[in-house]
Write a protein that binds this DNA or RNA. Sequence first.
DNA 1: CCTCCACGATCAGGATTCGCATGGCCGCAG
DNA 2: CTGCGGCCATGCGAATCCTGATCGTGGAGG
Lengths: 225, 225
Amino acid sequence: MRILIVEDDHRLAASLRRSLMEARMAVDVVHDGEEAVAAGLTTPYDAIVLDVMLPVLDGFQVTRRLRDQRIESPILMLTARDSVDDRVAGLEAGADDYLVKPFALREVVARLRALTRRHVPNRKSDLRAGKVVLDTAAHSMTVDGKPVELTSKEFAILEYFLLNQGRLLTRGQILEHVWDYEFDGGRNLIEVYIGRLRSKLIQAGAGDPFVTVRGSGYRYSAVRG
Amino acid sequence: MRILIVEDDHRLAASLRRSLMEARMAVDVVHDGEEAVAAGLTTPYDAIVLDVMLPVLDGFQVTRRLRDQRIESPILMLTARDSVDDRVAGLEAGADDYLVKPFALREVVARLRALTRRHVPNRKSDLRAGKVVLDTAAHSMTVDGKPVELTSKEFAILEYFLLNQGRLLTRGQILEHVWDYEFDGGRNLIEVYIGRLRSKLIQAGAGDPFVTVRGSGYRYSAVRG
DNA sequence: CCTCCACGATCAGGATTCGCATGGCCGCAG
DNA sequence: CTGCGGCCATGCGAATCCTGATCGTGGAGG
């Protein structure tokens, strides 16, 4: 699964790259429209994440040139404005989907998954860690087969940890993945949600899988049966 | 059940693909007429969804070329105009059915089912979930064997949920599946219909199978016993 | 070994968003 | 003209989210 990111904001590009790599995608990054066309023409990407506002050539032009050359890689456009014009222009140029800035990184991952999902109708969407099972299609969790209620934020955070089991996740990573990348998180938002997840998981008999790493963040490690 | 989608609007193509995949069909997508002919000649599709307005070769030409080569896959044409000429031209070229844009995605699924039924004559048309039985051929519902009246929109929505039991469905998905893909849904249309379905199902003794996922959508899970 | 402090955990309250019920309007068909 | 299905507007109630304050605790340094 090879993805091209076209984004001139280097900081956002780096965030995107890290997020997609966490989702086990191979990522290339370019920073202007000309490079984007060159890369798209020479490499068969499974999808292209394309900012609209770009130096040299904008996203519409890039899309059109690629489509003119019969490059049919799915294109996910990132648009700053929520103007209908932009949306229409992008889709007419040949984009497959679009996201309005600022977005949560998990949204990008989800859309890319949708765009690149080839005919595998019964793809399993379960994430597992010991007794804990997240059904990402149903947006539900079970522990030992028993359903446990989660709010959508709780679900999003737990999903992120399950996708990165054993890896340290900082508050910053969680914030920009679950909230949007501009969100100015309150002082202890993450702590509150980790606390809620802990109490729900413990109450459901799954123990406490979150390891606090003082000064850095948290790590999820499955509790053995 | 393998389907070829020929549609140059990438976003519509993506929506179509998702809908057909939800209906358990294997889907290939191409974006112009030339690719369509190539794909049609080399792969034995159970049906082809074919836009009329296409780059390189239009839908009529594609149809004619495929028919000339004795490709007999059923063809469902998508036409932007409601002109009789188009319809006649399409049918004369060898298409089997046609749909006028913009259409509801469920229409496409329904037509494809009809077109491919010949090959699978005894397909069951019942959808079940506990006491609830939808007869998709008769457009009627029974709960515990007792008939319950549904309007056509109510029926369409419930059918969609039964086809996707246990899966989270967003308002957007429901809108583009039941209404047409351009429909700009009012503020709380979906809520109103879910509300009606709930009250009818509860009144009929089927309990409330809809689970509200706040901030996301709804999930249908059959009520046991 | 003890103290202190910075960081994390917890709790409660308030703000906000979201969903639901109700009622009414509109357009079409009979 | 009338009835029905489909759609929209409003207001209420509640789930959820976020904040600020307070409490707990691990660990470094003395």
